[in-house]
Write a protein that binds this DNA or RNA. Sequence first.
DNA 1: CTGAAAGCGCTTACAG
DNA 2: CTGAAAGCGCTTACAG
Lengths: 348, 348
Amino acid sequence: MTRRADIAEVARHARVSKSTVSRVINGGYASPEVRARVGKVIQKLGYTPWSTARNFSLGRAGCIGLVIEDTQGQWIAQILGGIEAELTSKHISLLVGSLVVREHYDATTVASWIRERRVDGLVFTRAGQHERRLVEAAKRGGLAVALIAPDEDFTGVHVLRGDNVGAGAAVGEHLAQLGHRRVAFVGGQARTGENAWRESVDSVDRLTGLSKALGAHGVKIPESNVSFLRYHVECGVEYAERWLKLPRNRAPTAVVLGNDAMAIGFMRTLQSHDVRIPKDVSVVGFDDIPSASMYFPGLTTVRQEMREIGEAACHFVLRSVEAKTMTGSTHLYPMTLVPRESSGRVAE
Amino acid sequence: MTRRADIAEVARHARVSKSTVSRVINGGYASPEVRARVGKVIQKLGYTPWSTARNFSLGRAGCIGLVIEDTQGQWIAQILGGIEAELTSKHISLLVGSLVVREHYDATTVASWIRERRVDGLVFTRAGQHERRLVEAAKRGGLAVALIAPDEDFTGVHVLRGDNVGAGAAVGEHLAQLGHRRVAFVGGQARTGENAWRESVDSVDRLTGLSKALGAHGVKIPESNVSFLRYHVECGVEYAERWLKLPRNRAPTAVVLGNDAMAIGFMRTLQSHDVRIPKDVSVVGFDDIPSASMYFPGLTTVRQEMREIGEAACHFVLRSVEAKTMTGSTHLYPMTLVPRESSGRVAE
DNA sequence: CTGAAAGCGCTTACAG
DNA sequence: CTGAAAGCGCTTACAG
């Protein structure tokens, strides 16, 4: 662990001023000869500017933060990948923080990022009413903000989401083609408080598209076949238990769940009761998380390009940071139906 | 976006020096009266020290970095959760970077963290031969380093891993109890270069424990029933295709795979060929990723407490950072067998 | 217990 | 095109 060279040492060795070294590094004015000489010294000394000093001098954090609900969700992986790809070679690092730590909602990490100016920009996944304070604080602090699939209306920030109405419609069309007429929808919920939840807008949109497409084929989803539970495996299990109690000739022949995790919970419970999928019931989810294709039967779902969305969110944030403006924008990304084995032609 | 107060403004309002404000904030000497007065001003102005300035002054980064192979692995989620829990309220943030970006091995992000001193410490997951340069560079740079389940021997760093031999033995015992005598093992591989791989030590250890426990029951795993593929779903699929070609009376009645992802790939392929699990073949994995319990049949596996290990890794790194020492240490964490539906009594 | 001053390592107007 | 100087906002010996 030898002492690290600093910019002054480089300047001394190259017989120029620190300003010049800085300009060489950051692409400012410098004659070719000087540039070459300084470059050689930098090489020889193995000099790299200390990022903290650089950021301090530039008055910025040099980081953007990714806020996730908890570390369980499988789609955060893709978002992370997208953001990283966008950040590569940009002198900006990625901070990750979740809102649920040890099972408890806890916004202190993210709140301190904002207060202490630890980040220049923020990407929220699934921000809702409960995160409004945080989003507002971030805006007040002059941070660039992007929201992926938020569950509320926010202004002055970048909003990115999948085309949920279109996704629902694609599912409706798919099920109608397969001849289903008794369809159920089990949506997800968004957090509105410490322990308060309400219908998620993503799910409501998916239901809207689904109903519309089915309606075009003369199929109506009765109120009794619509419910909203939390976006969790266990809630899929819960609905499965409800489904199992229904007389088979009245039970839905196709069940559309708010996301893949719920769909998998639903399938696994049915399978453990010897219900065959898709022979006895077709199942559809949303998102296309890795588990969807790993399951047997493969889960029919609507793919959300989270990697691409993550990349775009990061891009918009970086652009706002550079421009030092706080404009907002809204972006809708297409979702594509991925038919797999869990959906099939209705029996008889 | 009102201008933020700085320490000088607080000092002015409280009619003390900046030194005193700093001491009040950081718990240095200060009379009760002064402490109260300064506290009140801080409250009123909503002052929070700017982390970048603070870190700059302290000569540190204020971050630790988590290095993952790629963003796909399901166990990174638990590690992330553990690290976050440990970091809560510690004025240290978590940077995340992966070694595989857009399908390509790319260590530049992590390398620049080290060169630019962006982190004070580093936690690597599954570091192997290919990461030795990075680990060495980190040590040379004076960073605290912890390795979770490394695939090589490293010295002068904190090493944390599950008790793989014990885990393998637990599986052996379990299968022997169920009467299995034809057992196969499909281990995983570790990266040794851009596109080079070799048997992972974790898998080798698991096989050692497995063989020993089975041996105690008079069961031997023939060489022909041992193979090593990559730790991926597709490799489980690959092995399944091999298994399907074997005559049933010679095929292994129990297959132990290097990790859960492989096991799930194996199961799903068998199921799609109407092979019943565990009736026709028992399947066991390692790790207990979320998908293991979500699958049907539930996957019997050996749980690795990744959350706890992540928390500990972070703890050791922070301790080394504070102590400014670079001691190494090694820690073995127990793994516990989680019997589920995928393993059962041997047929006949 | 408190304050004045130096220093952390960069960048960037400003002169030349 | 280049250099001297100021400044970013903290912390911390050092005096008192």
